Measured scan of single mutants.
Amino acid sequence: NQASVVANQLIPINTALTLVMMRSEVVTPVGIPAEDIPRLVSMQVNRAVPLGTTLMPDMVRGYA
């Protein structure tokens, strides 16, 4: 089972991601792999991401 990136807090739209906003968790469906967390830092979300939501590739500008 692969860990995915999950929002550690509410992340408002257009917010640049920081390490404290994300955690890794084994979830279904699988989202962005946890090993990509360092790559996600400073990328912006293109929608509001509620606490506990799995980050999907289409939620992060420039990721996919």
Rank of each mutant, 00 (worst) to 15 (best):
L19N: 07
I11G: 00
Q9N: 08
T53K: 13
S4D: 00
R61L: 08
V60F: 05
T15Q: 15
G31V: 02
A16E: 10
L55F: 10
A34W: 07
P38D: 15
V26T: 12
A48P: 07
D58K: 08
I37G: 05
Q2T: 11
P57F: 06
G62R: 05
A48W: 15
V27G: 04
P50V: 09
V41E: 10
L40M: 07
M56F: 09
V45M: 07
E35N: 13
M59K: 02
R61A: 07
Y63T: 05
R23T: 06
S42K: 10
M21C: 03
G52Q: 05
V41P: 03
D36S: 10
E25C: 03
T18R: 10
P33L: 08
R47S: 15
I37Q: 05
P57H: 07
V27Y: 02
V5Q: 01
G62E: 11
P50W: 11
R39A: 09
M22S: 00
V26I: 12
V41R: 06
Q44C: 04
A34S: 13
D36I: 06
L51S: 14
M56D: 05
D36P: 00
R23N: 15
A7G: 04
S24Y: 09
V49H: 02
A16G: 10
N1A: 15
V45A: 06
I13V: 14
G62K: 08
P29C: 03
I13T: 09
I32L: 06
P33V: 09
N8A: 12
V27M: 07
R23G: 13
Q9L: 08
I32V: 05
P29Q: 05
N8K: 07
P12S: 11
A34E: 07
L40E: 01
M43F: 12
M59Q: 05
V20N: 13
N8R: 11
E25G: 09
L55Y: 00
L19K: 11
M22Q: 00
G62L: 07
I13H: 11
V30D: 09
V49L: 10
A16Q: 06
T53L: 11
G31Q: 03
E25N: 07
R23I: 09
I37H: 03
S4A: 03
D36H: 12
R39C: 03
A7R: 00
S42D: 09
I37Y: 03
A7C: 03
T54D: 01
I13Y: 15
L17Q: 00
D58W: 09
T54Q: 04
N1D: 09
V60I: 15
V41A: 04
A3C: 03
S42F: 12
I37D: 01
E35H: 15
I32S: 00
T53E: 14
V60T: 02
D36K: 05
T53Q: 08
L19R: 15
R47L: 07
S4E: 00
A48N: 12
Q9H: 10
S4P: 00
L10D: 12
S42E: 13
L19I: 14
E25K: 13
L17N: 00
A48F: 14
D36A: 14
V60E: 01
V20F: 13
A7K: 00
P57M: 08
N8F: 06
A3Y: 15
A64W: 03
E25W: 08
M21K: 03
G62A: 14
M56S: 07
M22R: 00
E35M: 14
M21R: 03
L55M: 13
V30W: 11
R61D: 13
P50S: 12
V30N: 10
L10G: 12
L55C: 02
P29E: 07
R23C: 03
Q44S: 11
L10N: 11
M43P: 00
Q44Y: 10
Q44K: 07
S4Q: 02
Y63P: 05
S42L: 15
N46R: 11
S42V: 03
L55A: 00
P29H: 05
Y63V: 05
T54P: 08
